[in-house]
Amino acid sequence: MSTKKLTIQELARIREKTKAMTVLRDGAGRAKVTVHMGTCGIAAGARGIMDALLQEIESRAVQDVIVTTSGCAGLCNREPMVTVEIKDRPPVKYAQLTPEKMRRILAEHVLEGRVVAEYALAVGSETMY
């Protein structure tokens, strides 16, 4: 097997990249919220949902929630959707969201662990892709 020596510049690039990858994720033990940003989700208002989520995280000074995006969840007519995952619990998908609903989901489900059943579409461990 051939080996290639890394240069200082390459190591610096890897360091920078790894740091960027982990900076939002390190210590994020409480929950992960995935906003579905397929074409359908974006057209239905997913950007506004993520904006509301980030604003709420900012105003409540929440330090340990991962926010990320993914593609279409396969139910375009129920967008905008998010999936909330809390450690050792099944993921919960929420559908037809508004910024106000998103704020409530963050407060009750993400921060207090109580599923907001009236907005939930499904509970289960299916993968998104």
Binding site: E16, K17, K19, A20, V23, G27, E58, V62, Q63
Partner: peptide, 21 residues
């Protein structure tokens, strides 16, 4: 440039609300 920004802004500071801001 996002990675250069993270490298500058996150040195020694916690991620989260401050980074979002």
């Amino acid at each position: 440039a996002s990675h250069a920004f993270f490298a500058r802004s996150c040195e020694g500071s916690a991620a989260g609300p401050e980074l979002i801001r």
